[in-house]
Amino acid sequence: MLKRTGVPDRSQIKDAFPDESYLIKPKAIIECFEAIPCNPCETSCPVGAITIGADINKIPVIDHAICTGCGQCVHNCPGLAVHIVSIKEDKALFRIPYEMPDVPKQGDIWDGIGRDGKTVCEATITAVTQKEGFDKTTILNVETDKTYLYDFITVRRP
């Protein structure tokens, strides 16, 4: 399915998430399902939570017990395949990489978009971070209803 449409299966997405009990703290979700020669997520992780190994074609494996949700892997992933997720009461909190020139402002409410490009929910932009170290990738903090934990992936101007 992924290699036919570009959209991962529901089961692949679920497998990339840890048990929801982990998500009381922010954790990196790595949606890298294909063996490609690439390892910046592993080398950028300051706590050694991500393992690829000597063969850089291996799929990254993350230990969510070690991951601190620091977000280094988010802007270092060339494939924009990592985002940070946590749950707070009835809200899902995300930190996503964003590379479109139309950048939202803190407090904006934009469309929450799913992996197939369709609108799935309302998304509140809670922070917008642009830093030299991010190398022109903007990091957006976004809040949605917790229901959309596995559905939300990015935002679009409504």
Partner: peptide, 20 residues
């Protein structure tokens, strides 16, 4: 029958609403 490039590139496009 299958996308030729890396799946992560394809997923980035799909999020933007581009059909493949």
């Amino acid at each position: 029958p299958r996308i030729g490039g890396y799946a992560v590139h394809a997923s980035k496009l799909r999020r933007l609403g581009v059909s493949i």
